[in-house]
């Protein structure tokens, strides 16, 4: 097709500056609005808190043999996942341990403080092992070095009342030397 003859540009520079400014501001506002609304919604997860630390019943004292060998127990609690509510669901696991003849119970989270894998108990070698990056822990949660894990296993507060064990269920940040609970 034939190109149209060149048209000289309009001359009023001041008006054109104003026009440019207004076009930029207007265009910016027009796109920023959905962006801002989108960011607002995208940041929503920051407002969410986990089902917070609370004492959850785990088992009876007799179910934890007093042989110093930890036993794994599921942690059962009501749980919500966004719009779904679960009643009495397994939400994680703890290891409980009782020394011979003792009534006090030690509790450890089964979540590896290194990067969050599930720690397993090695009965033969009497230690804990994480299957992911070879962190190992002693039966009382101490570090077996050298270990990729920056800290000992996370001990959980544990209460024994009327022969029943309850544990304060908390999640901790992984990969750092201090034990910091997630909000």
């Amino acid at each position: 097709m034939d190109d149209p003859a060149p048209v000289p540009p309009p001359a009023d520079a001041r008006r054109s500056f104003l026009a440019k400014l207004m076009a930029m501001v207007g265009g910016g506002l027009a796109t920023l609005t959905p962006v801002a609304a989108g960011v607002w919604m995208t940041l929503d997860p920051l407002r969410r808190k986990s089902s917070a630390a609370s004492f959850l019943p785990i088992t009876k004292v007799e179910s934890v043999p007093d042989d110093g060998l930890p036993r794994q127990f599921p942690v059962i609690a009501d749980r919500t996942d966004a719009w779904t509510g679960f009643e009495a669901e397994p939400i994680g696991a703890v290891y409980l341990r009782r020394e011979q003849g003792s009534d006090t119970i030690e509790a450890f989270s089964a979540t590896c403080p290194h990067a969050g894998c599930f720690i397993e108990l090695d009965k033969r070698d009497r230690c804990f092992r994480c299957p992911c990056h070879n962190s190992a822990f002693t039966l009382d949660g101490g570090i077996v070095s050298p270990s990729p894990s920056p800290r000992t296993m996370d001990a959980l507060e544990c209460e024994v009342r009327d022969g029943r064990v309850a544990v304060k269920w908390e999640n901790y940040y992984s990969g750092i030397a201090e034990k910091v609970a997630r909000p």
Partner: peptide, 16 residues
């Protein structure tokens, strides 16, 4: 920590 929570869509793993 905030980055993680944003990616995970909340404090726990699930729908989001």
């Amino acid at each position: 920590p905030s980055l993680q929570q944003l990616v995970v869509g909340g404090p726990d793993y699930g729908h989001h």
